[in-house]
Design a protein around this nucleic acid. Structure first.
Lengths: 207, 207
DNA sequence: TAGATTGTTAATCGATTAACAATC
DNA sequence: TAGATTGTTAATCGATTAACAATC
């Protein structure tokens, strides 16, 4: 769709802007500016305008931006104008927490299924969702037309699980296992390593 | 200590290299090269050498790197040569999961205390740790000489909690609340917004 | 010596910022 | 019109990569 290369950091900031706009909207504020948004989220106003410029012109010179309109535009850009069914693999501590985590639900992500290899866990409930065996993966992905999945399994199983997900049609994977994973070119992969984040902090404290 | 500016991305990669080196070591491999590490973790070999060059010369030209030595050097650079006591604020779903999460423990992070405002939670156990009231925060930080803390509370409380942590001497904060927080210059702050990561994926799927 | 791999420099690439014309 | 703020261009900054001398 877009020819110009859009920095991933811009996308992440758009997501942050959208939260700020929701907040402004809740407070009944109708108009805002790149400077106000910038201050609110901790970036430069030029950055805000540049991030938006990748996608169009959403403001009025001399006036600013309409809060509701801009919010709506950004949600549309991010593909958040409708809900996303997701699957979650791994019902350990992290998996269970992610399943119960409100932050995903608030942004329109709906958990279509939670899966675990462990027979003892299968059939148990996490909140209102039943933990399913991996054998049900294909069925759930097809039934709910799931395109995204979260991997919260031990590192040693991660690649195997990802292969299965890809096989059954998952196109975007959010991985918490601290292991380099390989996926086909048409599958998006995003890794967050929680311990690495703490280690950046220990480095800074050690300087 | 260092005059040259070191990219934060380099620090994060060092952490990833150290995991790979631990893996090589476990397999009994004695010597490695920038090329091997690069392939193992998915970056370029020039990148590996550059990241290491910020901190010294750890290899032998024509030969490569000693796995154990390099591993040890990187852990030292990251400040991981001894354990770090940490506190965790918020014993909700996410907080509980982080408390039980093995990944932190494996890398030498020890939870010195878990805190929650909710009277019903206080006294309950998370694994082997008792949830404490916020009133105990100062005492625990002092007793265990804690410098790092994780924030896993609702966004609306995050700034207030962070202020308390800073007041009692915390110098590095890992924040999961999706809200811009302000801390003094001598306090390191790191944010990870889980929903933002999913939203980068929805964006890519929507293109 | 020939082959291999490091450490480092210079070139390239990409992202952020400053500045300003456009325009409400 | 005067003041304000956008959208966009050009300048700056910083990180990655390519290339190669050093050297085992």
């Amino acid at each position: 769709m877009k020819i110009q290369k859009i920095p991933e950091a811009s996308i992440m900031r758009l997501s942050v802007y959208s939260r700020h706009l929701a907040h402004l909207d809740q407070m009944g504020i109708v108009t805002t500016s790149s400077g106000e948004i910038a201050e609110g989220v901790g970036v430069s106003s030029a950055q805000v305008r540049k991030d938006l410029a990748y996608f169009g012109e959403f403001g009025t010179r001399g006036v600013g931006y309409n809060v509701k309109d801009l919010h709506h535009h950004i949600l549309k850009i991010l593909g958040l104008n409708n809900e996303w069914p997701i699957i979650l693999i791994g019902a350990g501590n992290l998996g269970t927490a992610l399943c119960l985590y409100r932050g995903f639900n608030e942004r329109g992500f709906r958990i279509a299924g939670v899966f675990d290899n462990d027979i003892k866990k299968q059939g148990q409930m996490v909140g209102e969702i039943t933990i399913l065996p991996m054998e049900k993966l294909e069925q759930v992905i097809e039934e709910y037309e799931v395109k995204m999945g979260i991997v919260a399994v031990p590192s040693s199983f991660a690649q195997e699980i990802v292969n299965l997900m890809v096989k059954y049609g998952i196109k975007a994977i959010f991985n918490f296992a601290p292991r380099a994973l390989s996926v086909p070119d048409d599958v998006e992969l995003r890794n967050v390593d929680l311990a690495v984040n703490l280690e950046v902090l220990t480095f800074k404290l050690s300087i």
